[in-house]
């Protein structure tokens, strides 16, 4: 795996996280949370664009990428399906968004110039995602979705001694797997879950153990096929 594939995975996750936030922007428990959901969704879609845009400078992107298959998206399984309850939103916001931010920090402080210069602004915006997630996590008594979000974040960081640790040794990342795991635990004030023993099932390209992929409706929307359904008959654009 190359550093470009890791950035591709970050970009794909950010795009889906932005979409999932946006799906909740009229369904959150308060109007303020609706607005914050919309703002965070816009942020993450913007971050995804910047990350995708950095891939060219990083060298070859994922050669195995097949744009016609939902499995070509390098996203965590947590983002495969729309969320059916607010706890899922909060756990993603507090844990997964923070995990992606930790990786962005490690890249932005690393020695790859294109990432050093382009990723800085994301960290300013992500600070407010963190405050939002952390506060909602404190509301009420316990969030049953946090365990799964944390587990998937740890899987996404990857196994110790793997490529992330190699990028760390090479100075492309300023944190290794152990640092990323402990920082995530500290930021969300939760003890790290047991590390999955079965790395044999882990897909190094998609950085996850669970099979499956994005739901069909979301995938069609991402490819622009969903929008075409609403195009008036004969509305195909004709270039003269």
């Amino acid at each position: 795996m190359s550093l470009a594939t890791l950035v591709q995975s970050l970009a794909d996750n950010k795009q889906l996280l932005g979409l999932r936030y946006a799906e909740w922007c009229t369904a959150a428990p308060t109007l303020e949370a609706d607005i914050a959901g919309a703002a965070m969704g816009l942020d993450d879609l913007g971050h995804s664009r910047v990350l995708h845009g950095s891939l060219r400078e990083l060298g070859e992107a994922d050669a195995e990428r097949d744009p016609t298959s939902p499995e070509h998206y390098l996203n965590v399984a947590y983002l495969d399906q729309p969320w059916s309850n607010w706890n899922q939103f909060v756990a993603a916001n507090a844990v997964l968004d923070t995990a992606f931010t930790l990786m962005i920090e490690a890249l932005a402080n690393g020695k790859v110039e294109v990432l050093r210069s382009r990723l800085r602004k994301m960290l300013q915006e992500e600070h407010y995602h963190y405050l939002h997630g952390r506060s909602w996590l404190r509301q009420g008594g316990g969030n049953p979705e946090v365990g799964r979000a944390f587990e998937e974040a740890v899987e996404w960081f990857g196994p110790e001694g793997g490529e992330v640790d190699q990028f760390h040794k090479a100075g492309q990342l300023t944190a290794g797997v152990a640092d990323l795991r402990s920082s995530l635990g500290e930021r969300v004030a939760i003890a790290a879950p047991p590390v999955p023993a079965d790395w044999a099932r882990w897909d190094p390209r998609r950085r996850r153990t669970r099979p499956g992929g994005i739901d069909a409706r979301t995938f069609e929307m991402l490819r622009g096929l969903e929008e075409k359904r609403y195009m008036p008959a004969g509305g195909e654009r004709k270039d003269s």
């Binding site: 303020e32 914050a36 919309a38 506060s135």
Partner: peptide, 15 residues
């Protein structure tokens, strides 16, 4: 309006 300073900051920035 928010339950704590964290969420108040997030809401103020978003709004």
């Amino acid at each position: 309006v928010a339950p704590d300073d964290d969420l108040a900051q997030a809401y103020a920035r978003a709004t």
